[in-house]
C-alpha cells in the first residue's frame, strides 16, 4: 500500500463536549484555543495525549481537551504525571498548573520534576493571584499586593518562575503570553519537540481578581519596548523599531546597539546567562524577557527508569515468581 489513509484532525476534534466554565474574558480561553489548534496542526493523536492538572482555575483545562485527562489534587500534578509517564512513556503528557498550584502547595514537586527531567510539558498559567479561592495574593504577587488576606499589603517576596525553573536545572524554560497566539504556538511547538521537561510560564490575565496586571508590560502600546523575545538563532533585540539590543558582559547583561547585540542560543548559553536574562525585569524600566531561556539535552527520567528494567531483564532473563520465592537458603521437611 502506498497510500495510507490518514484522518486529518481539526481544532474541533480536540474540543471536548464540556461547557467551558472560566469567567468571561479569562486569559485561559485564549490558551485553550491555541492549544487545541496546536494539537490539530501538529498532528497529535488524542488517544495518545494526556493532560494532567492539579487544582485551581487553570487545572480545569483537561476537561475541555478531547484527549485523556486527569484532574488531580492541589499541587501534585507533577507527581501524578511522573507515574503516568513512567508507566507508559509512549504517552504525550502535558501538565497544566497555576502560580499557586505549582509554586505554593506544589513547589516541592515542581522542583523535583524539573530536576528529574521527565519527558513532559508543563504549562504554568501565571496570573499572580489566587482565582478559584476568590482573590488572595499568590507566591508570584509583587510585595505590597493588597488583597482580602493581605489588607495592608503582602510582605513576602515573590518567586520568579523562570528563575525557579533555571535554579532547578530545568532543561527547557520558556515564557509566553496568553494574548499572543502566534508566540504561544511557537513555544508549544518548541516545548513539544524538546526531549525532557519543558517548562512554560504563560502570563495570563485574571479579569476578576487581578485584571490587566501585566498591562504595563504586554499592552500593545508598550509591548515592543517592555518585552524582549528570546528567539533561538536571532539577535536579542527589542523596541518598536528593533533598535535596542542586549549583550553579555563580565558582570552580567548590558543594553547595546543592534550591531553589538548577542545572538541567542538557549542550547549553548550558560545557566548564568539565562539567569541574568531572567532577572532583567527586576528593574521596572527594562523589558520583561519572553521566549526560550534554555533548551539543553540531559538524561531523561522516564527513559532511564524503563531502560534499567529492560537491561535487568535482558541481563538476568525475565524472572518468574517461582524463582523469586524458591530462592535464597531453602530446606526441605518431610
Amino acid at each position: 500500500m502506498t497510500d495510507t489513509a490518514t484522518t486529518t484532525l481539526t481544532k474541533k476534534d480536540f474540543v471536548s463536549d464540556q461547557e467551558v466554565r472560566w469567567c468571561p474574558g479569562c486569559g485561559d480561553y485564549a490558551i485553550l484555543a491555541a492549544m487545541q489548534k496546536y494539537m490539530a496542526d501538529s498532528g497529535a493523536d488524542p488517544a495518545n495525549t494526556v493532560f494532567v492538572s492539579g487544582i485551581g482555575c487553570s487545572s480545569r483545562f483537561p476537561y475541555y481537551m478531547n484527549t485523556y485527562g486527569f484532574h488531580t489534587i492541589h499541587g501534585r500534578a507533577p507527581a501524578v504525571a511522573t507515574g503516568v509517564k513512567v508507566a507508559n512513556p509512549d504517552l504525550s503528557v502535558w501538565i497544566v498548573t497555576g502560580d499557586g498550584d505549582a509554586l505554593s502547595i506544589g513547589g516541592n514537586h515542581l522542583a523535583h520534576i524539573l530536576r528529574r527531567n521527565l519527558n513532559v510539558n508543563i504549562l504554568l498559567f501565571n496570573n499572580e493571584i489566587y482565582g478559584l479561592t476568590k482573590g488572595q495574593y499568590s507566591p508570584t504577587s509583587p510585595v505590597g499586593t493588597k488583597k482580602k488576606s493581605t489588607p495592608l499589603g503582602s510582605v513576602d517576596r515573590p518567586f520568579n518562575p523562570i528563575a525557579f525553573a533555571l535554579g532547578c536545572n530545568a532543561t527547557f524554560v520558556a515564557r509566553s503570553v496568553d494574548t499572543d497566539a502566534k508566540h504561544l504556538t511557537r513555544i508549544f511547538a518548541a516545548a513539544d519537540a524538546h526531549q525532557g521537561t519543558s517548562f512554560i510560564e504563560i502570563l495570563q490575565n485574571c479579569v476578576i481578581f487581578n485584571k490587566d496586571f501585566y498591562n504595563k508590560v504586554v499592552d500593545r502600546s508598550v509591548r515592543a519596548d517592555m518585552t524582549v523575545d528570546l528567539v533561538p538563532g536571532e539577535k536579542i533585540v527589542y523596541g518598536a523599531d528593533k533598535d535596542k539590543g542586549l549583550r553579555f558582559t563580565a558582570s552580567g547583561l548590558d543594553t547595546c546597539g543592534v550591531d553589538d547585540a548577542e545572538v541567542w542560543d538557549p542550547s549553548t548559553a550558560t545557566v548564568s546567562q539565562a539567569f541574568a536574562i531572567s532577572q532583567l525585569d527586576t528593574d521596572p524600566d527594562t523589558p520583561k524577557p519572553l521566549g526560550i531561556f534554555r533548551a539543553v539535552d540531559a538524561q531523561i527520567y522516564d527513559e532511564s527508569v524503563r531502560e534499567q528494567v529492560e537491561e535487568a531483564v535482558s541481563a538476568k532473563g525475565e524472572g518468574k515468581i517461582e524463582d523469586l520465592v524458591y530462592s535464597g537458603d531453602c530446606w526441605t521437611v518431610g
Partner: peptide
C-alpha cells in the same frame, strides 16, 4: 519520590496509565 505525597501520587498516575 521526593516525599510521601509524591510517592502515592506517582503510584496513582501509574494506575491511570494501566
Amino acid at each position: 519520590m521526593e516525599d510521601e505525597i509524591a510517592a502515592i501520587c506517582a503510584a496513582i498516575g501509574a494506575s491511570f496509565s494501566g
